[in-house]
Amino acid sequence: MIRTIIIDDEKHCSDRVLKLISDHAPNLKVIAVCNNVEEAVDVTKTLDPELIFLDIEIHDKTGFDYLEKLGSYNFHLIFTTAFDNYAIKAFKYSAMDYLLKPIDSDDFIQAIDKLTKRLNALDQELQIKLLLNNLNKENQNKTIRIPTSEGFELITIEDIIHCQADSSYTHIFTTNSKLLVSKPIKYFDDLLKDDNFFRIHNSHMVNISHVKKYTKGKGGFVTMSNNNTVDVSARKKEEFLKLFK
């Protein structure tokens, strides 16, 4: 049984999680339900849970306040939130699981399925620290967690030069390495498009900060800071060039 704590200041929300656990997750044992940060910190330290469902806004504090006060994270964590805002992007950067309220049963089941396949608690602790670190940084200094065949790598966003599609995989070119990742380029387009990245071609996405030169043509092509050349599709040319006006 997975020892579980629910942290939420709204009773109907914690009741919803309890019902979902009862209906779909018999391997979870709820050992406490907390409705404020101070209580949650004390209970977590005392009961040593393996899984926590954590609300984002808890009275006048946040789930991030709870994590900062706690300091160590020997448990798995699933955020619950009613707000699809800046925090969602931070969750994606750190590959952190979250559920949007009102929590859909299918989303809940999927999150629990992922939980059973997840790496050890040390990996989860690193994810939480990465999340908190990103929340306190400007966009250009943020770090994303990239899954690899051997585990994962942490890459500073500003160090990514460009991404190239390869079927359902993506080649990521950085200032000091090249990675092959088992995610489609659309995954990285969705993740990075608001952070100075632009999809210049169906198969290519570039970091605007690393563009050195544009060469004219039907679509033309760009030369990146690593001297790689990347084609610009005719369809994307006008939109791309507007970024430099």
Rank of each mutant, 00 (worst) to 15 (best):
S225I: 01
F83I: 05
L131C: 09
D123M: 12
K45N: 13
I146M: 05
D8S: 09
A87H: 09
F197W: 01
L51S: 09
I52K: 05
I146A: 00
F83M: 07
I5M: 11
L67A: 05
I31W: 02
T62Q: 11
K69R: 05
Y73F: 15
P147D: 10
V43M: 11
L99H: 01
L191W: 02
S72P: 01
S182H: 05
L191I: 00
F79H: 07
Y214N: 04
G219H: 06
D55Y: 08
C163R: 00
Y66I: 00
T4G: 04
D48N: 13
D55F: 13
E239N: 15
D123V: 13
F244T: 08
I6M: 14
Y187S: 02
D60I: 01
A121Y: 14
K237N: 04
L119I: 03
K19Q: 13
Q110Y: 11
D159R: 07
V17I: 15
C163V: 00
I128F: 04
F108V: 04
K29G: 11
D15L: 12
S209E: 14
I161R: 03
V41G: 15
Y214V: 07
M96D: 09
I6Y: 06
H162W: 13
V181G: 08
H204G: 01
K183L: 09
S105Y: 12
N176L: 05
D190A: 07
T175F: 02
Y86L: 00
S14Q: 04
A87M: 04
V43Y: 09
V37I: 14
L77H: 11
F221K: 11
K137D: 03
L154V: 04
G71S: 05
